[in-house]
Simulated scan of single mutants.
Amino acid sequence: MAPVFCRRGAAAAEMALVTPFLIILMFGAFELGNYFLSEHVVVKAVRDGVRYASRMNLAKYNCTSASTDNPLTDTVMEDQIQNLVRTGIINSDGEARLRGWTDATAIDVGYDCIAVGNVDPPYGGIYTGLNYVPVVHVKVNELDYVSLFNNLGFTSSTIKLNAEAQSAVMGI
């Protein structure tokens, strides 16, 4: 006679073994989705900032010779661009687009002066008569990523968010 095995607890035992992996997979998917959402928010914020900066008057950019990485001399305009990137509005009263984005030190605003003769096809329209065209760039460097589970102790200082955008200044 063959031995008889009781199978009444087999499903419960299998569920007890599989459940931790399912929970890790589920919360990992949440965290990955949050990371991609945060990255998208930073990229969109940088695009908004460069779009705003590119609509400023051409006179605000001093392009008398070909040069790169020029800092803005108008600190009010730089503050407005940084506030727009961080909060979505140009004054400092706005709420941060991302949790934990408390200051604008990670936001770099500058411009390059490109010689008109170095561009093919040559610039025309509003750039006619200019020797150098300003190209503004906005960059977010090493912004700390804030985890969904930060309050539970799952913090990471190694995951950083970065984005960069540039546009020729078109003036108003």
Score class of each variant (00 low, 15 high):
residue 101 W to M: 15
residue 96 A to E: 12
residue 138 V to P: 11
residue 68 T to V: 14
residue 47 R to E: 15
residue 145 Y to H: 08
residue 94 G to T: 10
residue 171 G to F: 07
residue 43 V to T: 13
residue 112 D to W: 00
residue 103 D to E: 07
residue 1 M to Y: 14
residue 153 G to V: 01
residue 34 N to S: 15
residue 34 N to F: 11
residue 148 L to R: 02
residue 106 A to E: 05
residue 127 Y to N: 09
residue 24 I to V: 15
residue 94 G to L: 10
residue 63 C to P: 09
residue 43 V to F: 05
residue 122 P to N: 07
residue 157 S to I: 05
residue 159 I to L: 02
residue 82 Q to H: 01
residue 168 A to G: 07
residue 37 L to C: 08
residue 41 V to L: 10
residue 149 F to K: 12
residue 137 H to D: 07
residue 6 C to S: 14
residue 1 M to R: 13
residue 83 N to F: 05
residue 21 F to N: 11
residue 130 L to H: 05
residue 99 R to L: 15
residue 131 N to T: 07
residue 60 K to S: 10
residue 49 G to D: 00
residue 76 V to E: 07
residue 114 I to D: 11
residue 26 M to W: 09
residue 138 V to W: 10
residue 129 G to D: 03
residue 152 L to F: 15
residue 26 M to Q: 04
residue 92 S to R: 13
residue 149 F to V: 14
residue 60 K to C: 05
residue 157 S to N: 11
residue 131 N to W: 01
residue 108 D to T: 01
residue 55 R to D: 12
residue 164 E to K: 13
residue 130 L to D: 05
residue 172 I to E: 14
residue 168 A to I: 11
residue 165 A to S: 14
residue 55 R to K: 12
residue 64 T to G: 09
residue 36 F to W: 03
residue 50 V to D: 03
residue 149 F to R: 10
residue 145 Y to M: 10
residue 115 A to M: 05
residue 108 D to I: 02
residue 20 P to I: 08
residue 6 C to P: 08
residue 57 N to F: 04
residue 85 V to K: 07
residue 54 S to T: 04
residue 22 L to E: 03
residue 114 I to S: 09
residue 7 R to A: 08
residue 61 Y to E: 01
residue 38 S to T: 12
residue 137 H to L: 07
residue 15 M to S: 14
residue 90 I to R: 15
residue 150 N to T: 10
residue 62 N to F: 09
residue 3 P to C: 08
residue 17 L to C: 06
residue 112 D to T: 00
residue 59 A to C: 08
residue 121 P to N: 04
residue 48 D to A: 02
residue 84 L to M: 10
residue 12 A to N: 01
residue 106 A to P: 01
